[in-house]
Design a protein around this nucleic acid. Structure first.
Lengths: 251, 251
DNA sequence: GACATTTGTTCATATATCGCACAAGATGGC
DNA sequence: GCCATCTTGTGCGATATATGAACAAATGTC
């Protein structure tokens, strides 16, 4: 790609949108400049552009995103076949096993939820399509990393800040790589309270008709009612049945 | 705002993202140029920029958005307090009444879902945060339109294509305005299969601590099990209880 | 209340992008 | 197989944007 085939004003604007996050719903011009590394004058122009288009509100001091910004993500969710195809299967699966079921894909070092059917909430975090979790300590993340060429998985782990969310979180890259190899061999991953105490989950890869892994499916359950050792015997077959049923439908 | 405080490259890029939709998951350069009204060269530069930043894939012919684009909408969902505050209340409400419960806000002529707790699916459309419905024929839309100054509501209806989704859909602007006045007076709206046959819903406004309507809450139920006449007697009180409980928590 | 910082805004100019026109390549009909 | 049509890629002049410094205003500190 040539230098001139890149619209840096657009790229800068996207950076500005992403500056808004979890802990920062309202940002001043300087806040955004600092968060993005852009010049204050440039950040201001991007923010005023967002406001002009009603993607953001401006009270003269702080900018805040408006729900209109959801159109952007929705363009993906409604345009991409996978979420639509998977959703009814997750609904059925979730009802059958009386636990939450989800599907996700990999985006860099993170897992991105693309569909979800939730039963009564057991997690403190509220997951929905678009939500992200670090791949290294999520069951679907393990499955998706395990599906990559070993070198690629290793590279992603190197890029990740391996933080211990609970005392059980595995954070040693070497042990994680071993775990990925085991996951690939056995065809599923079980997470025992590595992301949140009290929460277990199990995931399997979802292949398309040509055998390429295109997503992961999981079931999450409270550790109190389903100990980690029982996850596989209870949920592996239902998950695999869904993956088998979906396989011929995925291009 | 001065002319030079607007980054048109950014605005054009956002238009390109929104060109991807329901029926158009993969678009060529010309497709996007046609859909957005941009010059082909410009559309191409925006698309290549998206691809360079991994917001889109490019196979040499077609562009498709990647899940990375969900970061943009997620910036809003995670940064805005309302969805987080409302979600656990919807969960409880949904379990209590054994029906789906949702919250939404108005964006132009459309209702945008910002949180949702779903029971077994009754709608053919799959709703999630970010999903949009036309305001004029959705229960939350009626409530949100009714909360606007009459002239503003009338203006939005004028901008809307009033399509009949079912034989029961109300599409006459004058009758809709009457309906909005009734909704405002009674403090709730009931929709009887106007959006989809077999689906009824009821919505109430959600006010903040200063009495401004900041969102709408609703419950949807299959018409077969809950006829429209029963929606209010069954669900109005539970909905209002949630709205009352939330009110002091909303700035 | 005066000083020091931070923040927002403006401006001139160097730089990058836009849209047009044209060339090259792909597609489809017959 | 050939022409008509549509699509994509590129060079260039005109136009729009980014930059960083300078100033003004607001905010925080002692």
């Amino acid at each position: 790609m040539r230098e001139t085939d890149f619209v840096s004003g657009f790229a800068r604007g996207l950076k500005v949108i992403e500056a808004f996050g979890e802990t920062t719903p309202k940002l001043s011009i300087s806040d955004v400049a600092k968060a993005t590394g852009l010049d204050r004058a440039t950040a201001r122009r991007c923010l005023l552009t967002l406001a002009e288009l009603s993607y953001a509100d401006y009270d003269g001091k702080f900018f805040a995103l408006t729900p209109r910004i959801l159109r952007l993500g929705h363009a993906y969710l409604s345009a991409t076949p996978l979420p639509h195809i998977v959703q009814p299967f997750l609904d059925k699966l979730s009802e059958e096993v009386q636990q939450s079921a989800s599907a996700s894909v990999l985006d860099g070092t993170e897992v991105v939820y693309i569909a979800r059917a939730s039963q009564k909430r057991v997690m403190s975090i509220n997951l929905m399509p678009g939500s992200r979790l670090p791949a290294y300590c999520a069951s679907m993340g393990r499955v998706l990393l395990a599906a990559l060429p070993e070198e690629e998985a290793r590279a992603l782990l190197r890029q990740t800040v391996l933080k211990a969310f609970t005392p059980r979180t595995k954070t040693d890259p070497a042990r994680l790589m071993e775990e990925l190899i085991r996951v690939r061999a056995q065809g599923f991953a079980v997470i025992d309270q590595e992301l949140e105490l009290g929460l277990c989950s199990i995931a399997v890869p979802l292949e398309n008709d040509r055998g390429r892994v295109v997503a992961a499916l999981n079931i999450g359950a409270p550790a109190a009612s389903v100990p980690a050792e029982q996850m596989a015997e209870r949920y592996l077959e239902p998950l695999r049945a869904v993956a088998r049923a979906l396989k011929p439908m995925l291009r």
